[in-house]
Amino acid sequence: MPILWLVIVGAAAGFLATRLMRIEAGIVQTVLLGMAGALIGGLILRFILTVGSLVGGLVGAVLGAMLLIWLWQRMRGG
């Protein structure tokens, strides 16, 4: 169940992050960005703020995905 939840939250976070950052990405890229963002953002928020709620996890996932998108754009020169 935790893996399924990570995919669901990752898809939602990736979708929101790609829309907020105004980039076009495929479904697989969006989900992977969201999942990675969920891991990064979730760890950061839980560590700093000890946030355990679903809303906090989603916010952390979106912020993490946005950070990855920003880094990805900088690395490819966009």
Rank of each mutant, 00 (worst) to 15 (best):
R76Y: 08
F47T: 14
G26T: 07
A17L: 00
S53E: 11
V28F: 14
R76V: 10
G77I: 07
V9Y: 15
W70P: 00
I3Q: 08
G41F: 02
M66K: 05
I44S: 06
G42T: 10
G34K: 02
Q29V: 09
L67R: 00
M1K: 06
L32R: 06
G60I: 07
T30M: 14
L71M: 13
I48M: 11
R74M: 10
I3H: 09
I40T: 08
S53R: 05
M35D: 01
Q29W: 09
V55S: 12
L45H: 09
F15W: 15
R46K: 12
A38W: 06
L68G: 03
L32A: 15
A17I: 01
G34Q: 05
R22Y: 06
I44T: 11
Q73L: 15
I3R: 04
W70E: 08
W5M: 13
I8R: 00
L71R: 07
G37S: 10
L67E: 01
G78Y: 10
G56N: 07
G52T: 11
M1D: 08
M21N: 08
L16D: 05
M21V: 06
G14P: 00
Q29C: 04
G42M: 12
G26L: 08
V9K: 15
A65D: 00
M1T: 06
L71E: 04
M66P: 00
A25I: 04
L20A: 13
V55C: 04
S53V: 03
R46W: 11
A17Q: 00
L45A: 10
A65Q: 01
I44E: 01
M21W: 03
R19L: 14
V55P: 05
L58D: 05
I23N: 09
L71H: 03
L39E: 07
G10K: 00
L63T: 06
M66F: 04
R22E: 15
L67V: 11
T30L: 04
V7F: 15
L68W: 02
R46A: 06
L49W: 12
A12V: 15
A65M: 01
G37M: 06
L6D: 14
P2M: 11
G78P: 05
Q73F: 02
L63H: 04
W5L: 14
A17C: 01
G42H: 12
M75G: 08
T50Q: 10
R74W: 09
W72P: 01
I8M: 11
L58F: 15
A25G: 05
G42P: 06
R46M: 11
L67F: 12
L16Y: 11
L43K: 02
V62N: 06
A12E: 07
G60A: 13
